[in-house]
Design a protein around this nucleic acid. Structure first.
Length: 563
RNA sequence: GCGCCUGUAGCUCAGGGGAUAGAGCGCCGGCCUCCGGAGCCGGAAGCGCAGGUUCGAUUCCUGCCAGGCGCACCA
């Protein structure tokens, strides 16, 4: 089901022609025998430099002992006489060979997009290999904040792109429902529990002060009364924690579902402790000689894997660290058969990356199979001012509030339009505006506009043309050909976004496509009395609609038919 | 102090070993008897600093400067 890539096909043809040309020049004695270097046939930045350009001649001077421009001329001379669509070839600059094509060469992509619809741009690049994308994985002790929201948008889009590019993708959320912070959470709940029932209670050091904790406990009391006052402390803590976690996880799932993110797996950290996998992981490291005891704790010899210092895996008190559970978790991922594992973490966790890679190495896995995407933090702006956030005091904007304020589409688009390693300034005012200032509306408007053309067509009592019978040669306007040219690029844009795990490339691409559509629309009428031309243009805008839709799908942004 | 990320137009950001570095916003100037003006067209304006590698560096390497984030028997 791999989409035929028109652009790539042309590039490959020109590449072959270049290689034949070298062979021809050598055979004719014009060039000495040379070893063919790795050369490029690429799309030049400047339109004046042709549709494609080859740098081969500039890589040969040393071998051929000739000036690059001279080599370029010889190669041009030896090109096949007849090549489809090729109008002329020129030597330019320091020795580029520029190919100028009949602009109609790309029109083939137009009916292709219309035929393939939702599959246009789908690739087999991933060859069906299993990849796991783990993202958000926020502590289930609170609500999702802006950092988590960015992770959600990025992770879901990366997963969608990899899926579209031919990988078998699993979206996964790791629930940190064990360990210290859960104990702390429980103690905080207990303190609120006592306070609400008129007793003394104090939030522990590093505990949870947020209003939401109090709200949760109040709900608990409404449902279950105060009988827990008499229970042993352990029972009280466990009961409150279990209740609160269920509620928090429920909220997280609901918010993510509303955000359009569907996970395949919700993985519990506690399950790793319960199943003995944490012990198993430590034992495996111990068998391999990477564990030692020191001052009552168990240490992983991270320094043997390039780290500055070793890491504790089991504390003096016998409780495994978060790191230990994470080792077991990653072992489990590979045991489940993923040959590629992608984690999306906030930049504040970057110190954990080398440790995790080191441990993969120690366990006998390839460190490269683990790919950590670090995303920089988000700053919110409202009215030109930074919105300060602090989890400690419970002052933060949640994902839910964000969606309520700016809507799902703007939120997702804004998180994705910047690369992950760029610090993101999120302008709430801009995200909320419904004007052309707002890029997400600009793009959606293009889609709605195309749909509107077809509604208009129906109102005039006309039918959609039989696309197979359309004569695309009637498309001669610059705006039409440029639009078609970029439509043809979609499969490659998908491939690049997948290879670089960079959804922002798709965001920029779709924005550009919208702009090209608007330019075309402004200069040319689609529906006119000239049926042949109308049909050709209808096919072109339908192809554009397909690409806008498919690209927006990859971003998790809706493509409305009306706005 | 050590490590990671980032310094590109007034602002927010793309790009990337090549031939004239892009977009949006903002600013200036134009375009509606016509399919959605939530649109289009044009203009001014930029690669933090210094070395190095290369035929060629904004891109790669080193150093420096600036901002962000880390450096727990937290996660």
């Amino acid at each position: 089901m791999d989409t035929i890539n028109i652009v790539d096909k042309m590039r490959a043809g020109l590449r072959r022609a270049m290689m034949d040309s070298v062979a021809g020049a050598v055979a004719a004695g014009q060039l000495p025998p040379v070893k063919l270097p790795e050369f490029l046939v690429e799309v030049p930045r400047e339109r004046d430099h042709g549709d494609f350009a080859a740098n081969l001649a500039m890589l040969l001077p040393k071998q051929a002992r000739m000036a690059p421009r001279k080599i370029a001329e010889l190669l041009v001379e030896n090109l096949p006489r007849q090549m489809q669509w090729l109008e002329r070839v020129e030597v330019a600059g320091p020795g580029f060979i520029n190919f100028y094509l009949d602009p109609r060469w790309v029109l083939e992509a137009v009916p292709l997009a219309v035929e393939q619809q939702a599959d246009y741009g789908r690739l087999t690049l991933g060859e069906g290999q299993k990849v796991q994308v783990e993202f958000v994985s926020a502590n289930p002790t609170g609500l999702l904040h802006m950092g988590n929201a960015r992770g959600a948008a990025l992770g879901d889009s990366i997963a969608a792109i990899l899926d579209f590019a031919g990988w078998q993708v699993t979206r996964e959320y790791y629930i940190n429902d064990a360990g210290n912070q859960i104990e702390n959470f429980a103690l905080s709940l207990e303190a609120r529990f006592f306070q609400l029932l008129g007793r003394d209670g104090e939030i522990p050091e590093g505990g949870y002060h947020g209003q939401d904790v109090t709200d949760t406990v109040r709900c608990f009391i409404d449902q279950h009364g105060d009988s827990l006052l008499q229970a042993p402390q352990r029972t009280r803590l466990d009961t409150l924690a279990r209740y609160a976690l269920a509620e928090k996880i429920g909220n997280i799932k609901a918010a993510l579902a509303e955000f359009g993110v569907k996970y395949d797996v919700w993985f519990s950290e506690q399950s790793l402790h319960d199943s003995g996998q944490v012990d198993e992981a430590i034992n495996r490291l111990r068998e391999r000689g990477h564990i030692y005891e020191h001052e009552g704790a168990l240490w992983f010899k991270a320094s043997a894997f390039g780290m500055e210092k070793d890491e504790v895996v089991v504390r003096k008190n016998g409780i495994p660290t978060y790191f230990a559970a994470d080792i077991a978790y990653h072992m489990d991922k590979f045991q489940r058969g993923f040959n590629w594992v992608i984690n999306i973490w906030g930049a504040d966790h970057h110190g954990h990356v080398p440790r995790m890679k080191g441990v993969m190495d120690a366990l006998g896995y390839k460190p490269d199979a683990l790919h950590v995407i670090l995303m920089q933090l988000v700053r919110l702006f409202r009215g030109g001012e930074i919105v300060r956030m602090s989890k400690r005091t419970g002052q933060f904007v949640t994902l839910q509030e964000l969606m309520d304020e700016v809507g799902l589409d703007a939120a997702r688009y804004f998180f994705i339009m910047r690369s992950a390693d760029s610090h993101l300034d999120f302008d709430l005012d801009l995200a909320r505006t419904q004007t052309n200032d707002n890029p997400v509306y600009y793009v959606q408007y293009a889609h709605a506009r195309i749909c509107s053309i077809f509604r208009q067509l129906a109102e005039q009592g006309r039918e959609k043309p039989d696309y197979a019978a359309v004569n695309l040669d009637l498309l001669k306007e610059e705006t039409e050909l440029v639009l078609a040219r970029r439509l043809a690029d979609f499969p490659e844009e998908v491939a690049m976004a997948a290879n670089q795990l960079a959804p922002h490339r798709i965001a920029r691409y779709v924005h550009e496509m919208a702009g090209l559509l608007h330019s075309f629309y402004n200069g040319s009428r689609v529906i006119t009395d000239d049926i042949g031309l109308s049909n050709a243009r209808l096919l072109l805008v339908e192809a554009t609609r397909v690409v806008l839709k498919n690209a927006l799908d990859l971003l998790g942004v809706r493509a409305p038919e009306k706005m």
